[in-house]
Structures are given as C-alpha cells and as structure tokens.
C-alpha cells in the first residue's frame, strides 16, 4: 500500500451508469425519430438538426468558458478550462439540441433555430445553474419562445405520400387542426399516422413508429419507467375522446378516436422524451403519478379549447409546479406508523 489509496465513505463499489451514459442513451433513442425526420422532410430537417445541436453545445461551452475564467489573465487558462469542460461534458446539451430540432417544423429558418438553441441553453439552463438546476425543460421553453417570436406554425406534409388510399394529403395544417378537434374533414388512416406518411407536422413528431422504437429502447435501458408515457398517453387519449364528443352535433363517446388522438401532433413525442426529463419531473413515484395525470388532462383540455398543439406549453406549466409537488409528495418510510396508531399504542 502506498499513499495513493483513496479514503471515502462507503459504498466502495458503484454502478457503471453515469450521467453521460444516460444522456447518450436518450440521444440514441432520439436517433430513429431524427432519421425519420430527414427521410420525410429532406435536407432542411438535417440542417435544422445540425444547427440546433451545434448551437446548444457551443452555447454551453461558451458559458462554461466565461464562467470558469477562460478569458481571465489574457486567456492564460484557456486550455485548462477547455480540458475541464470536456471532462465534465455530459451530453445534456446534445439531447436538448436534438429534442429542440425534432419539435420544430421543417420550414424553420436556420437562424431561427440558432437563436432558439442559444435561448434554450444560455437562458433556460445555464442561467439557472446548469445541468440539473434548470426549472423548466430547455427544449420546450425554447420552442415556446420561438413560437412567440417567429410564429412557426406552417407545417408541410411529409414528402412520402399516404400509403393507405383513403387518406387525404394535408398541407399547411396538422392532422390535429384538420379533423380531430373541429370534426370537419375526413380522418387519416391510423397506419399513416403511425408511420407518418403524408402527415404534416414537426420533424421528429410525425413518425410515431420511430418514437415507439425510442420508447422501447429507453425502457430496456431503464432510463425511463415504462408506465410513465403509457399513463400519460392513456389518460390523455381518454380525456381527449371524452371532450371531442362535444365538437360533434350530438354528444358521442367514440373510442375509435383514441388512436388518432394520441398519434396526432406532438403528444407522443412529448410523453416519451419531454415529460420524462429527469431534471424537471417530480422525484418520487406518487409525485410522478400526479404530475403525469394532471399534465395529460391539462393537455387534452388546452388542446380542445385552443385547437393548436400546446404540448410545450403544458410541459412548461407542469414544470413550474414540480417544486410544489415535491413538497407535498414525500414517501412514508418502510415501517412507518401512522401518528394516530402510534398514540393508541401508547
């Protein structure tokens, strides 16, 4: 034994899982959706994805560089700070950039994406303290910011047309505003919705099959719990079906609308990749149940009344309630005795 032995509190063995590994898994899970986006929307989608990821990573680096004194003493420490940044780089900004790109329509201009990426990382994440400290999901906050600044509501249909013959080709509006909420036009076939062929929408949100592949990967790698998106989508679909009855001439509870509802717009993407974000969701299981349930109902309600896709807004709203949820949902320890019983016992 020489003096290089390490002394610490137990445990002396730890799992191999790291933050970087988990974020890498999320990035891998996002890849099918990203590739599907490129196939459906062409090179514009690829440009948006690259710009978004680069903007996020570069912003994080710049912030770290400035905050850790990279410019101090005439840039004497610049090399050291760069090395330190690389050492602590945990891929969170890559995930944020990828998610942001996938929830944008392919008509977004590259400079809009650049501004959105900078906003997501600099203002939403780093200003609040960096990884793990942000109050709201950076990607959804940036999406809302871009929606308010550049509108970005023109969706184009995927390049590959519907494979089921009865489907109609939509341009300029998502399936969502087309028929589900106003009951005016004919429905798309569920298989088209699942694959995303002929569907107008955001880059990563159109191909639900790719999202489901990502979901399965995340569950297998134990990054998310399987019931989280299932609960969210189930409750959301049910509430949406319940509400959409009111849009018809006479109230009708039509469960056949369930699948079109959960496969339209960005709900499924939000449920798998955005609601499940570790940093901005509650800590304990009961809190998470509450969070997903309220989020699902709120999303269904807002979507019904606003007639547009509001997943990002709902994520923002729910994120802000998380500290409050965490305060009220505290688990009772194993073997906890209720106060009443404890008094009786004495």
């Amino acid at each position: 034994m020489d003096n290089t032995v390490v002394i610490s509190t137990p445990p002396h063995v730890k799992s191999k899982r790291t933050t970087r590994g988990i974020m890498g898994d999320v990035a891998i899970a996002l890849l099918p959706a990203a590739i599907a986006g490129i196939v459906f929307f062409g090179w514009q989608a690829l440009v948006i994805e690259i710009v978004s990821v680069l903007a996020c990573v570069a912003t994080e680096f710049c912030y770290y560089f400035i905050a850790n004194g990279g410019f101090a003493k005439k840039c004497k420490n610049a090399g050291k700070v760069c090395k330190k940044w690389l050492h602590q780089f945990d891929l969170t900004s890559v995930v944020t950039g990828l998610i942001l790109a996938l929830i944008l329509p392919s008509t977004a201009k590259w400079y809009e994406v650049l501004i959105g990426g900078i906003f997501a990382i600099a203002i939403v994440k780093m200003f609040f303290g960096g990884t793990g400290k942000n109050l709201v999901n950076p990607a959804s906050a940036a999406r809302v910011f871009m929606f308010l600044s550049f509108s970005l509501t023109t969706y184009v249909a995927a390049k590959i047309g519907p494979i089921m013959l009865e489907s109609e080709l939509y341009t300029g509006a998502t399936n969502l505003s087309g028929h589900l909420l106003t009951a005016q036009s004919t429905a798309m076939h569920p298989i088209d919705l699942l694959v995303g062929t002929g569907v107008a929408g955001c880059i990563g949100e159109t191909c639900k099959a790719a999202i489901i592949i990502g979901y399965i990967y995340l569950v297998v790698r134990k990054v998310i719990k399987w019931w989280q998106p299932v609960l969210f989508l189930g409750l959301f679909g049910f509430t949406a079906v319940l509400l959409s009855g009111f849009a018809m001439e006479s109230y009708k509870f039509d469960m056949s609308l369930f699948l079109p509802h959960i496969m339209s717009g960005g709900v499924m993407f939000a449920a798998v990749f955005m609601f499940t974000d570790y940093v901005t969701s509650p800590k304990c299981v009961w809190g998470q149940l509450f969070y997903y349930a309220v989020g699902a109902i709120l999303l269904a309600l807002l979507r019904y009344f606003t007639k547009i896709e509001v997943a990002s807004f709902v994520i923002l709203i729910m994120n802000l309630f998380v500290p409050l949820i965490d305060r009220y949902f505290i688990r009772k320890p194993f073997g906890y005795i209720k106060e009443k019983k404890a008094k009786e016992g004495k």
Binding site: S8, V13, Y278, C284
Partner: peptide
C-alpha cells in the same frame, strides 16, 4: 473495482429513491 469518480451535478433522476429499501428520499 474501486469506484473513485468525481461527483457530477444531481440530475434529480430519482434512482436513489427507487432503490432505497427503506423508501426514503
């Protein structure tokens, strides 16, 4: 074998609570 890694910021992932045999946080 020995784990001597530098701690990184807490992600709030809740894995510690998931594995706690006493159901603590």
């Amino acid at each position: 074998e020995a784990a001597c890694e530098e701690p990184t910021p807490c992600l709030n992932c809740g894995k510690c609570a998931d594995v706690c045999p006493m159901k603590l946080m």
